[in-house]
Computed example of a mutant assay.
Amino acid sequence: MIIASLLLLSAASAEPAIDCDNAMAQFELNACAYKEFERADAAMNAQWKITSARMKEIDKDFDRTQDNRPGYFDTLLAAQRAWLTYRDKHCAGEGYTMRGGSAEPMMISGCQTQLTEARTKQLKDLIEEY
């Protein structure tokens, strides 16, 4: 049984990489769209670290004696969590244009990529304002 599992694992890892520049089959297009989303998400996560660190710095220097509202970081964190929910729900809705079809995952990933790239720019722009 262990040998059969190892053979399955080695067969799965031996699958050829998809050439996204020449993808034609829907499963390839879906995989490539998801790969683009993963790239955009990684870039956003990198920018998040920079932006959230800057908001924490601002919070350290902020005089709370006159203002007891949430800090810069706490507000940013709440907004980011809400934004992630929005992105995923909105893109699921966009995917419904191909609801139940083989292209639905591609539509969702494409939407997520577009919104994530826009959010990355927003996070970058935010620290430039401060």
Rank of each mutant, 00 (worst) to 15 (best):
A4E: 10
L9P: 00
S10I: 12
S13F: 11
A14M: 15
E15Q: 08
E15I: 15
P16Y: 12
I18S: 13
C20M: 13
C20H: 10
C20D: 09
C20Q: 13
A23P: 03
E28N: 14
E28Q: 15
N30I: 12
A31T: 05
E36S: 11
F37T: 02
A40L: 13
A40T: 06
D41S: 09
A43V: 10
M44G: 04
N45F: 03
N45T: 04
K49L: 15
I50S: 14
T51D: 06
A53I: 13
R54S: 11
M55K: 08
K56L: 03
D59Q: 11
D59G: 10
D59H: 04
K60R: 10
K60L: 07
D63P: 03
D67A: 06
D74E: 15
D74S: 13
T75S: 15
A78T: 11
A78F: 03
A78K: 14
A79L: 08
A79T: 10
Q80L: 13
A82E: 04
L84H: 02
Y86R: 12
Y86C: 03
R87M: 03
R87A: 04
D88F: 02
D88V: 04
D88A: 02
K89P: 07
C91P: 00
C91L: 05
G100S: 12
G101D: 09
S102V: 05
A103H: 11
P105W: 03
P105R: 04
I108C: 01
G110M: 12
G110Q: 07
Q112W: 00
T113R: 01
T116V: 01
E117G: 00
E117P: 00
K121C: 01
K124E: 08
Y130R: 09
